Amino acid sequence: TETRTFDSEEEAKKAQKEAEKQGRTVTITRRDDRWEVRFD
């Protein structure tokens, strides 16, 4: 599991799309003013 933090939802969604192309499961969580993206 890898976790990355982004400043914008746009960036988080971009990372999510990339990871899903690779067949990974992605979870996006809102953390205050940041977006946390978890790759499984």
Rank of each mutant, 00 (worst) to 15 (best):
F39L: 08
D33C: 10
G23M: 03
T1D: 11
D7Y: 14
S8A: 03
D33V: 03
V26G: 09
E18N: 06
R24A: 11
V26W: 02
D40R: 06
I28T: 02
D33L: 04
W35T: 00
I28Q: 01
T1M: 12
Q22S: 11
V26Y: 02
D7G: 10
F6I: 01
R30K: 15
T29V: 14
R30S: 05
D7M: 12
Q16I: 11
E20Q: 10
R24F: 15
I28M: 05
R38E: 07
T3H: 07
Q22Y: 12
R4Y: 14
E20S: 05
E9D: 03
T1L: 12
R31N: 08
A19H: 05
K14W: 11
E2H: 12
F6Y: 14
T25S: 10
W35Q: 00
T3I: 15
S8R: 04
F39N: 03
S8Y: 03
T1C: 12
K13D: 05
A19Y: 14
V37G: 02
D32S: 06
R24M: 15
E10V: 09
D32H: 11
K17F: 12
F39D: 06
I28K: 01
E18P: 01
F6V: 03
E2V: 13
G23Q: 03
T3S: 08
R4F: 14
E18M: 08
E9Y: 15
E11I: 03
A15L: 09
R38Q: 09
G23D: 03
K13N: 07
T1F: 15
K14G: 06
A19N: 03
Q16M: 14
V26M: 03
V37K: 01
K17M: 13
K21D: 14
T29F: 10
I28C: 03
E10T: 06
V37Y: 01
T27C: 07
T29H: 11
E10C: 05
T27L: 06
F6S: 01
K14H: 12
W35L: 01
V37D: 00
T27D: 04
D7V: 07
E9R: 05
G23V: 01
D40S: 13
K14T: 10
E10S: 07
D7P: 08
T5V: 15
R38M: 09
Q22V: 10
Q22M: 13
E18S: 05
A15G: 01
A12M: 03
T3V: 15
D32I: 05
R34Y: 14
A12V: 04
R30P: 06
I28L: 06
F39Y: 14
F39E: 05
F39A: 05
Q22T: 09
R30H: 12
D7Q: 09
K17W: 12
V26L: 03
A15Y: 15
V26T: 10
I28G: 00
F39C: 09
E36G: 01
T1V: 13
A12S: 02
T25E: 08
T25H: 14
K21Y: 09
K17I: 14
T27W: 07
D33R: 03
T25Y: 12
K13Q: 10
K21P: 01
R30W: 12
T5S: 10
Q16K: 12
T5W: 15
V37E: 00
R34N: 05
T25D: 06
E36P: 00
R34L: 14
E20A: 09
K14Y: 11
D33P: 02
V26P: 04
K14L: 14
V37R: 00
W35N: 00
A15D: 02
T1Y: 15
T29Y: 09
K21A: 15
D7H: 10
E2A: 10
K17S: 11
T27N: 05
K21H: 10
A12K: 00
D7K: 09
F6E: 01
A15H: 08
S8P: 00
V37F: 02
V26I: 04
R24D: 04
D7R: 09
D33M: 05
Q16F: 11
E10G: 05
G23A: 02
V26E: 01
K13T: 09
V37C: 03
A15I: 07
E2G: 09
V26F: 02
T27A: 05
E36K: 01
E10A: 11
Q16S: 08
E36A: 03
T27H: 09
R34W: 09
E20I: 09
T5G: 04
F39S: 05
E10K: 07
K14S: 10
K17P: 00
Q22F: 12
D40W: 13
E18Y: 07
Q22L: 13
S8V: 03
D32A: 11
D40G: 10
T5C: 05
E2D: 09
A15R: 02
S8M: 03
R30G: 04
R4C: 13
R31A: 07
T29I: 14
D7W: 13
F39M: 10
E20C: 07
Q16H: 05
R4V: 12
K13A: 06
K21F: 09
G23I: 01
G23N: 04
E11A: 09
E18H: 07
V37W: 00
T25N: 10
K17E: 14
D32G: 15
R30Q: 14
R38W: 07
A15F: 15
K13H: 08
I28R: 01
R34E: 05
R24E: 05
E11D: 11
I28H: 00
D33E: 09
D40F: 12
E11H: 04
D40M: 12
T27K: 07
F39G: 03
K21M: 12
D33S: 08
G23W: 04
W35A: 00
D32M: 06
F39R: 02
K14F: 11
W35V: 01
R34A: 08
T27Q: 07
E11N: 04
T1H: 13
I28P: 01
W35G: 00
E18R: 06
T5L: 15
A19R: 02
A12Q: 00
K13M: 12
Q16E: 06
R30A: 07
F6H: 01
R38K: 11
E20L: 11
F6W: 02
E36W: 05
Q22E: 14
R4L: 15
E10R: 06
K17G: 06
E36M: 06
S8G: 03
S8T: 15
F6R: 00
Q22N: 13
T25I: 12
T3D: 04
D40T: 13
E10W: 10
D32E: 13
G23T: 01
Q16R: 08
I28N: 01
A19M: 12
T5P: 02
E36F: 08
Q22P: 03
E2K: 08
T3G: 04
R31S: 07
D33T: 06
D33N: 13
F39Q: 04
T25G: 06
T29K: 07
E10D: 09
K17L: 13
K17A: 14
G23F: 04
T29A: 07
T1G: 13
T5A: 06
E10M: 07
T5Y: 15
E36H: 05
D7I: 08
K21S: 14
R30L: 13
R31H: 11
R31I: 15
A12Y: 02
T25R: 14
E20H: 07
T29D: 04
T25W: 10
R4K: 12
T1E: 11
W35Y: 05
T1Q: 11
G23S: 03
E18I: 09
G23K: 03
R30I: 10
S8H: 04
E2L: 13
Q16A: 15
E9H: 09
R30V: 10
K14Q: 14
Q22W: 11
E18V: 08
R34K: 15
V37T: 02
A12W: 01
E36N: 02
E2P: 08
R34G: 12
E20V: 08
F6A: 01
R31E: 05
K21L: 14
D7T: 09
S8K: 05
K13Y: 12
E20P: 01
A12I: 01
E2I: 13
T3L: 13
W35F: 04
D40N: 11
E9G: 02
D40A: 10
E11Y: 03
I28A: 02
E9N: 03
A19L: 15
E36L: 07
D32W: 05
R31L: 14
E9V: 06
W35E: 00
E36Y: 09
E10P: 04
K13C: 08
E18K: 06
A12L: 02
E36S: 03
